[in-house]
């Protein structure tokens, strides 16, 4: 269910410090969100494509993710060009499109894809336990890091449990349909997953207390910045500042 391949065949970011990558991805998201002009957002997309190439994302994964995010974009294209007030232009057939609406939809599409690409390139290759470790080093509250790591740990367990119930239901000839029976079955299955999850959480906590848990996690993995990080980070942030200034200039 959650067997998402995080590994990359070839990535320039593989040895990079996860803290740098997380900070860079967050900064890129915010910077690209601020951009409003068409020229600057196109430049952001070009920058994100370079990052994606450096991150070595495989084409099938990339297309799958882009398809998912562009469903929302499609929804925007189906509404905004018609709904936006302002000057109308004839583009196609009898429909009157708003020029501002088309511009807004284009900028949104480009920004959306640019942020997705940069995020995929920088973050989705980091193993999740290392993300937790990096968040801890970035001074995210310890309780939140605890929650993050534990959620990741138990997503698989809860997912497996749900699939076991689903297999059992299938073996008994359960076929989902629009009926109260389906809803009741799903409610019962989920209720069971839920109750088991709460029981499990108590057992986990008791087990942790027995092993001397005092609220802090000790990670064995060390996150270290490499010389390459020290070269990458200033360049990256300079590029973001440049994109931001370009947008201010083009607005």
């Amino acid at each position: 269910m959650i067997a998402e391949c995080q590994g990359r065949k070839f990535s320039l970011f593989r040895t990079a410090d996860p803290r740098t990558l997380l900070a860079a991805a967050a900064a890129a998201s915010f910077c690209f969100s601020f951009v409003q002009s068409l020229g600057a957002s196109a430049s952001c997309l070009a920058f994100a494509l370079i990052l994606a190439a450096m991150g070595g994302i495989s084409a099938p994964l990339l297309l799958k993710r882009l398809a998912a995010v562009n469903i929302f974009v499609l929804f925007i294209w189906l509404t905004i060009p018609f709904a936006m007030p302002g000057e109308r232009i004839d583009v196609l057939g009898p429909l009157r499109w708003s020029a501002d609406g088309i511009r807004l939809a284009m900028v949104t599409t480009i920004k959306c894809n640019a942020i997705l690409l940069s995020f995929l390139a920088l973050v989705s290759g980091i193993p999740l336990p290392l993300v937790g470790c990096a968040l801890d080093r970035l001074r995210v509250p310890a309780k939140l890091v605890f929650l993050f790591l534990f959620t990741f740990r138990y997503v698989h367990v809860v997912g497996e449990e749900w699939q076991r119930l689903q297999t059992a239901a299938k073996l008994r000839g359960f076929v989902p349909s629009n009926s109260l029976h389906t809803y009741r079955t799903i409610g019962n299955m989920f209720g069971l997953t839920f109750v088991n999850a709460i029981d499990r959480s108590r057992r986990i906590y008791e087990a942790m207390l027995l092993r001397g848990f005092d609220g802090s996690f000790h990670t064995v993995t060390e996150v270290k910045s490499t010389p390459a990080d020290k070269r990458f980070a200033p360049l990256f942030f300079a590029a973001l500042v440049f994109l931001f200034l370009l947008d201010v200039y083009l607005r």
């Binding site: 269910m1 959620t151 997503v155 809860v158 989920f190 839920f194 999850a197 709460i198």
Partner: peptide
Amino acid sequence: YSRLTTAAVLSSVFFVGSLVRVPLG
């Protein structure tokens, strides 16, 4: 922390729930 363990496991339930499809119309 005892409550956080519950919260973490319920986050996982939420995560799994968002992958479960329910027929509707």
